[in-house]
């Protein structure tokens, strides 16, 4: 009896495990190819995160693709960091979103990934952009363009 009960418990547990086992890790946001191209062009420029003095600048010195990434910089004026003094990064767009990797002098390489990346760009216009972070909560951030496209 004891043995039977243990077997039933395992069976139930196994069933539960199977039911709980999911491909949640396999689920990911997908950007379409066309959207990627548009976003790669339109993202070029300087953006301010709404409600903050945090700025992001995306340059067009590459193609914005994984093979030919472009570069940029972000800085936070609330901490007395000006453009040119901020975090340099490498960016590219692929199907899972915008990837940003920061440059580190200590390693001499773009070796520090942005923790909230990849960003899923929800919308991007000449004036505004929104993206959703990959922080597990799906936080949406809104930006306002402040600089010319480069």
């Amino acid at each position: 009896m004891k043995k039977l009960l243990r077997m039933m418990a395992c069976l139930i547990m196994a069933t539960t495990m199977f039911s709980l086992t999911s491909c949640a890790g396999d689920d990911e946001e997908i950007m379409q190819e066309d959207d990627i191209k548009v976003a790669a062009e339109q993202i070029v420029g300087t953006w301010q995160l709404n409600g903050t003095r945090e700025f992001w600048r995306f340059d067009a010195d590459g193609k914005g693709s994984k093979v030919s990434p472009s570069h940029g910089e972000n800085w936070d004026k609330d901490e007395d960091i000006n453009e040119g003094e901020g975090n340099r990064f490498e960016w590219y767009l692929q199907s899972n979103g915008l990837m940003v990797t920061y440059f580190m002098e200590s390693t001499g390489a773009y070796s520090d990934p942005e923790p909230d990346a990849p960003f899923i760009i929800n919308s991007i216009t000449d004036k505004a952009m929104t993206w959703t972070t990959n922080n597990g909560k799906g936080t949406t951030q809104k930006f306002t363009r402040v600089g010319q496209n480069r």
Partner: peptide
């Protein structure tokens, strides 16, 4: 959920998981 069930299954990894492993390697190598 088991978020990383397929992380070490190349045939089942998605783009993000692929990217994750690349980043791990990038960090370690650098």
């Amino acid at each position: 959920g088991c978020k990383y069930a397929n992380l070490y299954r190349p045939e089942k990894r998605n783009v993000t998981q692929e990217q994750t492993l690349e980043l791990k390697d990038l960090i370690s190598t650098s």
